[in-house]
Computed example of a mutant assay.
Amino acid sequence: MDDQPFDMDALADELHDLVPEFSGLHAIEKFNTGQSNPTYRVEADSGRYVLRAKPPGPLLKSAHQVDREYRVMKALADNDVPVPKVFGLSQEHSVIGRMYFVMELVEGHIFWDPALPEMTKAERAAVYDGMNDVLARLHSVDPEAAGLGDFGRPGNYFARQIRRWSEQYLASKTEELPDIDRLMAWLADNVPEDKGRASIVHGDFRLDNMIFAGHGEQVLALIDWELSTLGHPLADLSYQCMQWRLPHASGFRGLGGLDRGDLGIPSEADYVARYCERSGIEIDNWSFCLAFSFFRLAAILQGVYKRSLDGNASNPERAREIGKAVPLLAAMANDIIAGKA
Rank of each mutant, 00 (worst) to 15 (best):
L255R: 07
A159K: 07
P178L: 11
K121Q: 14
G231D: 03
L263P: 02
I96R: 00
K340I: 11
N190G: 07
A75R: 02
D204E: 13
D259C: 07
D224Q: 10
V50C: 09
P154L: 11
P55G: 09
R52W: 09
V83D: 05
Y40L: 01
L258T: 06
R320H: 13
E29M: 11
A27L: 13
H64R: 00
L76Q: 01
D270G: 10
S140I: 08
M242Q: 02
Q65A: 06
Y100F: 15
R164M: 02
A273N: 09
E107G: 11
L246E: 04
V50F: 11
G256F: 06
F31S: 15
E104F: 07
S308E: 10
L25A: 06
P55V: 08
P58C: 12
G130H: 10
A331W: 05
Q4N: 12
E69R: 04
D17A: 13
H139S: 00
G149I: 12
L222F: 01
G152Y: 03
F292H: 09
M8A: 10
R260N: 13
S228H: 09
A330G: 14
A126W: 02
D259V: 10
L301T: 02
A146W: 12
F294Y: 08
C276S: 14
V134M: 07
G88K: 08
G261R: 03
H139F: 05
S140N: 07
L263C: 00
D262P: 05
M99T: 06
D17S: 14
I337L: 13
R124K: 14
D262F: 12
F205Y: 01
N285E: 12
T174I: 15
Y100H: 10
P327V: 10
R197I: 14
D3G: 15
H139G: 01
E317Y: 09
Y49H: 02
R124N: 04
